[in-house]
Write a protein that binds this DNA or RNA. Structure first.
Length: 777
DNA sequence: AATCCACTTGTTTTT
DNA sequence: CAAGTGGATT
């Protein structure tokens, strides 16, 4: 047990002020590595020591891991007996708890299923098919994205139907039926007693909006509210937090606007930038001392993020050693990139005796992991990959979980389809289509139809009807068992009863063995889960208890922090909040990082923040690598180094000898000219067909592309204004004419022609093939 | 109904 | 390169 004085003495001045301030709302802007988690945990400990009961404190985090970690640290400070009463968890897990306790009010049961994104995509696919729409136009993933966006902005299906602007923009985008799809989707989810991730936020809002007594109850209960990573909250989350804190105004949020990287998921950076507006009496605290990284790394990150505008002004500094400069590794191919990185790691491991767990390889996309895996394997370097296909997304695991879901919630249509299909029992697509149609016509669930095909006049023959009722009876019997057995016993029973174990032991193929192992892992996971809950004093841990937690878990949460010494491979997104002694940021190429999908200044700035997050993960050493060519979709692409490299103060970079040359064929988009560029892009679209970067590899293409270097795809924002290695807006130098600005670019017979304004020397049209322009900036 | 094969297709990040 | 689709086969 610790006293208040001791607690505060372990903090620096600014941290202490932030922790001790309790007189009103507060916003803590915590620069990278400045002890953000420390402030949050100490603040909670401070509140507990000042007399708040733990069950009156609500702390919302972004990941389960962060919540667990924080809880553990609070337990160390004030004791586990207190810490365990805290309401601490992710938005989704806390809201799940709230929704389950009040489910009936909004037309669900406490056993509602959580549809993951592939469940919800499947539902959407079926709806699109049912409505006889073209799935090339109504792309499920895109529809899903728009619905998600609507929900995150608290636009319900019925609000959408009467939202003029949205309907107009949909009809302009040639997808006028989107609103109908949304409505049908919402209706079907409701009928299935299921919510998707976004629904959990949406329905929590509805619950708090429409049921004043519920809102009042939660306001009473949560006397103090803390939110981590506030820069990544979306409108739905923001409004919930605001509602809960509205009366007592005891709220503290922590975040860093420079690390906002989830706008694709609806996060709105304005939530943190506008906090003062939302909570006018709030006080802002800034944490600017970085305890994580060397001075060089901090300086590099600062120089990068300076290129973004509209940030909260701060001066992040480090008092650690100056450290090494950031080292750039240049490879000819993506395979070589893997080799170089692995070699560097090997060298550090043997020369400096850093354990492998001190290393991380961070990339923009999961698909990039392959080359590194191979290179690491060749050197026998142990590694652990995070992300990608998670444990819970494996087919066999999803199959088993589908049975759990169906037993807990028979209305869960997606689970039912999955179960009925595996193990195979002679019920196929045609039958299920009929069942779906029949269910739709009678406005009942698939489950009801299967239970009594005759009553619903399902047009199937006798043997098929029997198969259906058999299946129904089997699930019913298991549901009965579920009233007395715990989750672990049920899991074992289900796997035996439904024929999964039989199917898996049929042959000893490698796949079957691996599947069996995975299922075994799941079962023992459930066992551990039950034991843990019993230890915490709970009784009767049923399947529902297990499911409600597991559906909100990602694979990162499951990783047993084993004693083994392994290197980490993950996306930069997944690395947020983590730190490593040595960090490798790989694939620093145009089209990849920044992603080829960026189409606005705002998105480009988010990519830059992502790079900022990557850099600031490093404690001691940071390496950046890129390849000049890379396989993508089975095709060889030639690539240019990322523009972000030139955003970093060049004095802090260790450049390879050939780097200047490589940069000179790269294209850099000057930020301030961007709007012009996009206007130009639109006007040029038909006339100016850009050369495709993607081409089959032939012996001559390397040379050809390297010299003309018109390597942008036509989807790229940079495609029009860049060519021959220069970009519109570039300041260039010409031997004869001196300095000038590139005004426009066009293509003539495959050669790039640039109009350059040389000021007093006039404007000139130059063929880049002949003119030797040097890019100045 | 289920399986297999050849073809197309399309690709960020995730609670 | 991969996953997912559509068609033919058993």
């Amino acid at each position: 047990m610790i006293t208040l004085e001791q607690l505060l003495s372990q903090l620096n001045e600014h941290q202490r002020e932030a922790v001790a301030y309790n007189a009103g709302p507060s916003l803590v802007i915590a620069g990278a590595g400045s002890g953000k988690t420390r402030v949050l945990t100490y603040k909670i400990a401070y509140l507990l020591l000042s007399g708040y009961h733990p069950s009156t404190i609500l702390a919302l985090t972004f990941t389960n891991k962060a919540a667990r970690e924080m809880k553990r640290r609070i337990a160390d400070l004030v004791g586990a007996d207190k810490a365990k009463w805290l309401w601490m968890g992710t938005f989704h897990s806390i809201f799940s708890r709230m929704l389950r306790s009040e489910a009936e009010r909004i037309g669900f049961t406490p056993q509602f299923t959580v549809y993951d994104s592939s469940d919800s995509r499947n539902v959407l696919k079926a709806i699109i098919k049912e409505m006889q729409l073209d799935d090339k136009v109504y792309k499920p993933a895109m529809i899903q994205g728009r619905i998600s966006y609507a929900k995150n902005n608290l636009i319900t299906a019925s609000a959408y139907e009467s939202h003029g602007n949205l309907l107009k923009s949909d009809s302009d985008a040639r997808i006028p039926m989107l609103s109908n799809i949304y409505s049908t989707y919402a209706k079907q989810c409701r009928q299935a007693n299921a919510m998707d991730f976004d629904d959990m936020l949406l329905y929590t809002n509805i619950l708090l909006r429409d049921f004043p007594e519920v809102l009042e109850g939660f306001r009473q209960r949560f006397q103090f509210i803390l939110v981590d990573e506030y820069q990544d909250t979306n409108l739905a989350q923001h409004i919930i937090v605001k509602r809960l804190a509205e009366i007592h105004q005891r709220i503290a949020v922590v975040g860093d606007d420079a690390q906002s990287i989830y706008s694709f998921r609806g996060a709105n950076i304005d939530n943190i930038l506008q906090f003062k507006v939302q909570f006018p009496t709030s006080k802002m605290f800034k944490l600017e001392q970085n305890y994580r990284s060397t001075q060089n790394i901090v300086a590099a990150a600062n120089s990068l993020i300076k290129k973004n505008k509209g940030q909260i002004q701060k001066n992040v500094f480090s008092e650690k050693d100056e450290g090494n400069r950031i080292q750039l590794l240049t490879a000819m191919t993506d395979t070589e990139e893997g080799y170089l990185v692995a070699k560097e790691i090997s060298d550090l491991y043997y020369q400096e005796h850093h354990p492998y767990s001190d290393f991380a390889i961070l990339y923009r996309t999961n698909a990039q992991s392959r080359n590194f895996e191979e290179a690491l394997r060749k050197r026998n370097i142990p590694y652990r990959i995070y992300g990608g296909l998670s444990f819970y997304q494996r087919k066999e695991i999803r199959d088993v979980l589908a049975y759990f879901r169906l037993i807990v919630n028979p209305l869960d249509g997606e689970a039912l389809k999955r179960c009925i299909n595996y193990p195979t029992r002679g019920i196929g697509e045609t039958t299920m289509t009929k069942v779906s149609e029949c269910a739709n016509q009678n406005q009942v669930s698939l489950w009801s139809v299967i239970g009594d095909p005759v009553f619903f006049q399902l047009p199937v023959n006798r043997p098929t009807a029997t198969k259906l009722t058999h299946f129904y009876a089997m699930i019913r019997a298991l549901s009965d068992d579920a009233t007395t057995l715990d989750a672990y016993e049920m899991a074992v029973k289900i796997i035996k009863t439904v024929g999964i174990s039989e199917d898996m032991t049929e042959d000893m193929s490698a796949e079957n063995i691996s599947r069996r192992e995975n299922i075994q892992e799941l079962v023992s996971g459930i066992h551990t889960f039950c034991e843990q809950k019993v230890n915490e004093g709970e009784t009767q841990i049923g399947l529902a208890d297990f499911l409600s937690e597991v559906s909100l878990l990602s694979d990162q949460d499951l990783d047993a922090e084993g004693p083994d010494d392994k290197l980490t491979l993950m996306t930069i997104h997944a690395a947020k909040g983590l730190e490593f002694r040595n960090v490798f940021i790989v694939g620093m190429e145009e089209e990849l990082f920044p992603s080829g999908y960026v189409s606005s200044e705002r998105e480009l700035e988010e990519e830059r923040r992502l790079f900022y997050v990557a850099l600031t993960r490093a404690e001691e050493r940071c390496f950046i690598s890129y390849a000049r060519s890379r396989f993508r979709n089975g095709q060889l692409n030639f690539t240019n180094p990322s523009r972000f490299l030139s955003d970093i103060d060049q004095n802090l970079l260790d450049l390879p000898a050939d780097f200047r040359q490589a940069m000179s064929v790269s294209s850099f988009m000057p930020n301030k000219r961007e709007e012009e560029v996009f206007e130009k892009k639109i006007s040029n679209e038909e006339s100016d067909a850009p050369i495709k970067t993607t081409q089959r590899f032939t012996s001559s293409s390397w040379k050809k592309v390297a010299s003309s270097s018109s390597q942008m795809t036509n989807t790229s924002a940079t495609s029009i204004q860049s060519g021959g290695g220069v970009a519109v807006g570039n300041k260039v130098f010409h031997e004869k004419f001196g300095q000038g600005i590139v005004v426009s670019l066009e293509q003539m017979d495959g050669n790039w022609k640039a109009n350059v304004d040389f000021g007093s020397n006039g404007s000139r049209a130059l063929l880049l093939k002949y003119a030797k322009l040097v890019i100045l900036e």
